[in-house]
Design a protein around this nucleic acid. Structure first.
Lengths: 157, 157
DNA sequence: AGGCAATAAAAGCCTTGACAAATACAGCCT
DNA sequence: AGGCTGTATTTGTCAAGGCTTTTATTGCCT
């Protein structure tokens, strides 16, 4: 009934699915490029995926590793090795929870905390560039659209 | 001046970048799930990435392999192997261009052409589900937002 | 014709995400 | 206490993308 796209007339080229993918690829590429271009950050060789983890940890923390996975839609197996990499760079620290020894607490080290702000500045700059020409209310609307899509995704059938 | 996000107040959790990623992951997962669930399509074992290629080829065609890469934001090296896979499934066919022998034409086989419509039906259904509750004008607006972001991405600095 | 830069595709290697199996632990039931 | 079920993390293996190099070809210039 309230369908947006019809099977016959659906044009991937201008459809939301295809565009979503392209925007995301472009955004991650831009982020990686700018991380690599920044003389300070280049040394750490942080990727956009690693930034997503650091970012979440720094601002919201995580109850556990799998909690973090759900937060950022990341695979649990991949997260173990992701944390390995970040740990070897000295940006995060692991520790078993005393309450529930199944859980692993992951937190930023001092090095991680100092490295984060410039990365965030780069990320905000990139994001703003993608939103150039948007009014604040348009940006809020975009966020709201995406949030609603996410809710629809979780609502089963 | 017209910046949408401020460094201090930026909240990844509700920001466009993070949401974009989550929506996309959810959408591809839903698509893969439905492809696997469909008794007809399951036999072909098409992934969402393969569907993107078939989809583009069927509706728009491609001048060459790298042309196709640009169209759907896909790596050229990966495309070679992607086409290998699709070719081994008998869905596409390669042929050297007579005009410019550097180029490889890629086109759907008859099997590819018949396999595509049901895949498209599934994709449209998934997309519509994500857009449940959207008015048509809201959907158009979302598309326009994403298109504008893409244009901003290409506009250099 | 020969040289040269640009472009296209493919092949090789590396990294990394996805999925499955294994292990460890917690909570509940009996 | 013992057993069962569910959850968390880790490890192994595989599949796939990213990057780099190689080869083939074209178009341009001399």
């Amino acid at each position: 009934m309230g369908d947006i796209y019809e099977i016959e007339s659906y044009e991937p080229r201008s459809g939301a699915g295809h565009l979503l993918g392209k925007v995301r690829v472009a955004m991650l590429a831009a982020l990686d490029r700018e991380f690599a271009a920044d003389p300070e950050l280049a040394k750490l060789e942080v990727t956009s995926a690693q930034f997503a983890v650091l970012s979440w940890l720094c601002l919201y923390g995580a109850r556990s590793a799998s909690d973090l996975c759900r937060s950022i839609s990341y695979d649990a197996g991949a997260m173990t090795r992701m944390v390995d990499r970040l740990e070897s760079k000295g940006l995060v620290r692991r520790s078993r929870s005393a309450d529930d020894r199944r859980l692993v607490h992951i937190e930023l080290t001092d090095a991680g905390n100092t490295a984060f702000p410039p990365m965030r500045a780069v990320a905000v700059r990139v994001l703003n560039r993608f939103l150039r020409g948007f009014s604040k209310s348009e940006a809020r609307q975009l966020e709201s659209f995406l949030t609603r899509m996410l809710e629809n995704a979780h609502a089963e059938v």
